[in-house]
Design a protein around this nucleic acid. Structure first.
Lengths: 334, 334
DNA sequence: TAAAATTTTGCAAACTATTGCATCCTTATA
DNA sequence: TATAAGGATGCAATAGTTTGCAAAATTTTA
């Protein structure tokens, strides 16, 4: 049905090699030949079949985009940016939803069957074995939003969660709150654990300030809300660092139900700076994670790995910053 | 690097056809042969290369998932459900972001180059030419959330927007509001136009009730907020039907700034029933669009088209229903 | 047990492209 | 103008699989 190389060659009265060469850049073809071939191709509406091409070039330009998080609003931005950035490099995202998959084997096999050139593991909750499973099959992999380790086995790009935790604590301290709590995401998420570590380290510098912590059952509105309501039974802290923004909006909602004013009765600091955090009826003060930079860097790294698959693994970490809105009281000068 | 058919054949001491056949179901292979081949394959860690296979079978099992909407929270659910449903049928979504693409040609060519088996156009705002461009190249296409026409050229699954508009008007009327407004999405979106048509038709039945309408510049929080603030300068209606939920949350926020109580001063009805509409601090009364059913049906239809590409086009429309929360006052019995 | 029917197997030709090598054609150099 | 150098072209092999056809092996039937 759709025309092939051969059809074009026939119509132009040239060899198939000639046609192939006019469609692969850097190949040696005379102007006259190119004109002739392009004319025939245009008349037939031909364009080269990437799949067949990949058989000999061993490049499909397919990139597996695997994630287990399809319900956090920041992922809208994540998917948008990833797809565009990949498209701009002539790469195509093959989407893989890991939501109810615990074993890397299946995904690895599947992506191998499609001969993807590389895979981006986009998750802050997936265990590192996932990324390693790809690397072990010699598939280039970058773990975006992954956990930074002192000696990474696998390319990681994201933020330093320990530093982010420290930043959060410092921020709350600077506002003069005298009892401060960490209300993290699920305990199994390494991102939460790392942030807690940093948070705790910073709080250790301030023995005069009461410090407590707990975990919500998920990074979700309902989990945040439920947890703050539970905590309230035993007494609230003066300020909370919420595991992420949707969790924090849940906390906000719980606080509202409890009749607590924010930021005067209780302060709240979120994490991520998702779009809705900036909505006027939410106005969450939060720590911005530089998603645009992280994703741009992730695909740059992927492109570099396609050039040189044996690249020495690195961790690319981007700094966060707090964006001031209305859920934290002003900085107190002592 | 990765083992091929030939490697397995060699190790098992059989022909490549035999190996191929043990991996394609329905093919004729003796038990003994199958055992032998499976053993060799397992030892080498072989699994068939889909790309090479597709060359002869003319089936890639790749489905283009094209959308231009990466910033509406309902699309989280949409992507999650689509990827899972496709995966369950052994199909793979190739994601295409159309956000800054106006010409179908590029997308068609690109997806043709990857020999996708079909494409799902997932959008309520894309012009119908997009879907038709695929059909014209004989690529099976279903337009999810597309516009229903009396004689569709292309398979459409979604809702009847005219009926939804009528339902919205009826709902607001039933609450006894005496001046009612339609505050739609961007005027170029056919979904908005269709809903307006239904809304207006229903309002025509109630000449005693004041009816006005206007359009926000986008389906977004800021657009909704800006529009309601603009309208307020000339006086507010008693109740609004917002183009979609995020628009409606914007309206809600604007109303709040204006010091208007909802639902007592002003009523608000949303559309979509996105997850956050149910959050306690939003509690938006809204019209639920049966996304789960729409998507399940879309991929069922796609699977059917893969069997029979010449299937006569149909429109599959699902009914909506209103979900009661806190932005509309109770039904008034006259 | 022999012939017929059926199932299993392998050969070789696809599928759509790329590419190393050899040949042919140009152009530049002396 | 003859020769060298370089660029353009085509042939044929190759990538990893499937599949129609014929041959071989097995099972059924009489």
């Amino acid at each position: 049905m759709t025309p092939t190389l051969k059809d074009v060659a026939l119509r132009a009265g040239v060899s198939t090699s000639a046609v192939s060469r006019t469609f692969t850049d850097g190949a040696s073809v005379s102007d006259k030949m190119r004109k002739k071939v392009e004319k025939a191709a245009a008349e037939l509406g031909y364009s080269p079949n990437f799949i067949a091409r990949s058989l000999t070039t061993r490049r499909t330009k397919l990139i597996g985009l695997v994630s287990d998080n399809f319900y956090n609003p920041v992922f809208l931005e994540v998917f948008d940016r990833f797809t565009r950035a990949l498209q701009d490099c002539g790469l195509r995202p093959l989407l893989v939803n890991l939501s109810n998959e615990t074993d890397p084997e299946n995904s690895v096999r599947m992506l191998q069957q499609y001969s993807v050139d590389g895979v981006m593991v986009v998750s802050s909750t997936l265990p590192p074995e996932f990324s390693k499973a790809f690397r072990d099959k010699n598939i280039p992999v970058v773990n975006t939003f992954g956990r930074h380790a002192t000696s990474p086995d696998v390319h990681v790009v994201g933020i330093d969660n320990v530093a982010a935790g420290r930043m959060a604590a410092r921020e709350l301290v600077s506002r003069g709150y005298k009892s401060i709590a960490f209300l993290g995401g699920p305990k199994r998420a390494t991102s939460t654990l790392d942030r807690l570590e940093g948070f705790r380290a910073e709080m250790a510098q301030h023995p005069d300030i009461a410090f407590t912590f707990s975990f919500a059952s998920a990074y979700s509105f309902q989990a945040g809300r439920a947890e703050i309501l539970r905590i309230a039974e035993h007494g609230l802290a003066e300020a909370y660092f919420g595991g992420d923004d949707v969790l924090s909006v849940g906390i906000l909602s719980g606080l509202q139900d409890l009749g607590k004013g924010v930021p005067n009765d209780v302060g709240l600091l979120g994490f991520n700076n998702m779009e809705m955090a900036g909505w006027e009826n939410i106005a969450l003060t939060t720590i911005h994670q530089p998603i645009a930079q992280i994703i741009a860097s992730s695909v740059e790294l992927m492109v570099a790995m396609l050039e040189n698959p044996d690249r020495y693994p690195e961790a690319r970490l981007f700094p966060c910053h707090v964006v001031e809105r209305k859920t934290l009281r002003p900085i107190q000068s002592r």
